[in-house]
Design a protein around this nucleic acid. Structure first.
Length: 115
DNA sequence: TGATTGACCAACT
DNA sequence: CAGTTGGCCAATC
């Protein structure tokens, strides 16, 4: 166990970005990965989401989808309807497993969160 | 400790 | 147009 708050883990960095996603918006794994400078390590973002339940913070992983706007990790929410309802609950329209007007609600951390 | 997998993305065949 | 491969890094077997 490392010093709390001093986590320089890749996951912690992903969490801080994801939790800052405003409601009614969504982003993609690759966008986060690029923002962190990891580039093509978009897989790690997915892994971070997988471990998100281990984090003490609530990670709105339902706001994080693949670059196509498809709910790739819906199965990890305990059901395909869960993620869909969560998004619709925030005003995001979801058609089947894909977000409607995804480019419209797309939230780019590199753009909104200038570092 | 080495090999495999993983909620992705992009390019190549 | 669909299937395969390479890449990144960390966790699990």
């Amino acid at each position: 166990m490392k010093a709390p708050g001093d986590n320089d883990s890749f996951f912690q960095r992903v969490y801080e970005v994801v939790v800052q996603i405003p409601p009614g918006r969504a982003t993609s794994y690759g966008a986060i990965a690029r923002y962190l400078g990891t580039g093509r390590s978009a897989r790690m973002v997915g892994w971070a989401m997988n471990a998100s339940h281990t984090s003490l913070l609530w990670i709105p992983a339902h706001r994080v989808v693949n670059r196509n706007g498809t709910l790739t990790g819906k199965h990890h929410f305990g059901g395909s309807e869960i993620m869909k309802q969560l998004l619709e609950s925030e005003g995001i329209k979801v058609n089947g497993d894909q977000i409607v007007n995804f480019e419209k609600i797309f939230w780019d951390p590199a753009k909104e969160l200038s570092y």
